[in-house]
Simulated scan of single mutants.
Amino acid sequence: MLQNQPPIQIFISTGEVSGDLQGSMLVEALFRQAKQANIALEIRGLGGEKMAEAGAILLGNTTEIGSVGILESLPYILPTYLMQKQVKQYLKNHPPDLVILIDYMGPNIGIGNFIKHNLPTIPIFYYIAPQEWVWSLGSRSTAQIVKLTHRILAIFPEEARYFQSKGAKVTWVGHPLLDRMKIAPSREQARRKLGIQPDEIAIALLPASRWQEIKYLMPILFKAAQQIQAKMPTVKFWIPLSLPKYKIAIETAIKKYQLNAVLVSTPSDHYQTLEVLSAADLAIAKSGTVNLEIALLNVPQVVVYRLSDLTAWLARHLLNFSVPFISPTNLVQMQAIVPELVQEKVTPENIVHEAIELLTNQPKRQEMLNHYQQMKQALGEEGVCDRAALEILKSLPK
Rank of each mutant, 00 (worst) to 15 (best):
Q144L: 12
P207C: 06
W135M: 13
L137N: 13
I152M: 07
I239N: 02
T149H: 08
K193L: 06
E188A: 12
Q164Y: 00
A208S: 09
T234L: 11
W238S: 03
W135H: 11
M181G: 02
I183H: 00
S165K: 03
H117K: 14
D179F: 05
T121Q: 15
W238H: 12
Q131D: 14
K147E: 14
L194G: 08
P219C: 01
S139V: 04
K166I: 05
P107V: 09
A202C: 10
F125Q: 11
I152P: 04
T149D: 11
S165F: 01
Y216L: 09
E213G: 09
A160M: 05
D103Y: 14
A129C: 15
F237Q: 04
A129H: 12
I111W: 08
I228N: 05
P244K: 00
A204D: 03
A230G: 03
G110Y: 08
F237L: 03
G138Y: 04
H175Q: 10
Q131E: 14
K169L: 00
P219K: 02
L137C: 10
G138I: 03
Q131G: 12
R180C: 01
D179V: 02
Q189P: 01
S136L: 09
K169M: 01
M105Q: 15
K166M: 07
S209W: 11
A225M: 06
A160D: 12
K182S: 00
S139D: 07
N108H: 14
I239Q: 06
I128D: 13
Q164F: 00
L153F: 08
T149A: 12
R140L: 07
V146L: 05
